[in-house]
Amino acid sequence: MRYTAPSTTAEAVNLLASNPDGARILAGGTDLLVQLRAGIIAPELLIDIKHINGLRDIVAEDGGLRIGAAVSGAELGEHEAARALWPGVVEAAELIGSTQVQGRCTIVGNLCNASPAADSVPAMVAAGAIARVIGPNGSRDCAVGEIPVAPGRNSLAPGEFITSILLPARVEHASDAYLRFIPRTEMDIAVCSAGVSLKLDKSGICVAARVALGAVAPTVLLVEEAADALIGTTLDEAALADLANACAQASAPIDDKRGTVEFRTEVVGVLAKRAALIAKARALGETS
């Protein structure tokens, strides 16, 4: 194995393209190093993107924020503007691993690793985040939800990698929230999770919503029926019950060491309900 730390995206694209099978991007390494050690992957070349200009920056763009692919969870969590704009995405990113893992992990690594249980992904999907992909043919934008295609597999073409994520601008009376279920209080992988982003009108009625679920299907699920259950309501009990139902309906989880089908199907709805209420309170400015 070789290690390289290019300083430009062009260099990185070249390296990737000229080693189509054997090269891997190294961001925080918190998935990659674990997989290396376990012998799950054996890349020939590691391309460390942390020294590429601009990839460690968070910059304002059209009212939203562009987050560089090498920004760590801790850096994102310390960014006041990001917290204020998309509290759900930031809280999801901050749930990844321990303080130590936070010092390294990235939301792009979380996305590209394509684990069904990745914490930041449902929150980003609910937020309508856009990934900027660069490759031999230049750059393109892609909805975050289209990146993971199966557990451990993403849709990036050979030679491509992600340089940043755009968290879009946010209108008034809107906010988001993310919750996951784990058996302990920390240091676990989500058994199931829900990200909710919603917008209210002046009277407190939900006029737009996005609900995304994690760990209940091979990839993150954006559940339209769940959003529909919220739209036009004040998130009253009936609407929340419909939301939970829609989440359960959409879920297609598996039994594994972390949870059962029955448990995941039920609890994912509970999480969606609770996340919706937190997002609502945030949208109303009641909490941050």
Binding site: P183, R184, T185, E186, D256, K257
Partner: peptide
């Protein structure tokens, strides 16, 4: 054995 690591063999952490 399905959970031969501290991520899935869940010993209590400080916040538990």
């Amino acid at each position: 054995l399905q959970n031969a690591g501290f991520l899935d063999y869940r010993v209590p952490v400080a916040s538990d």
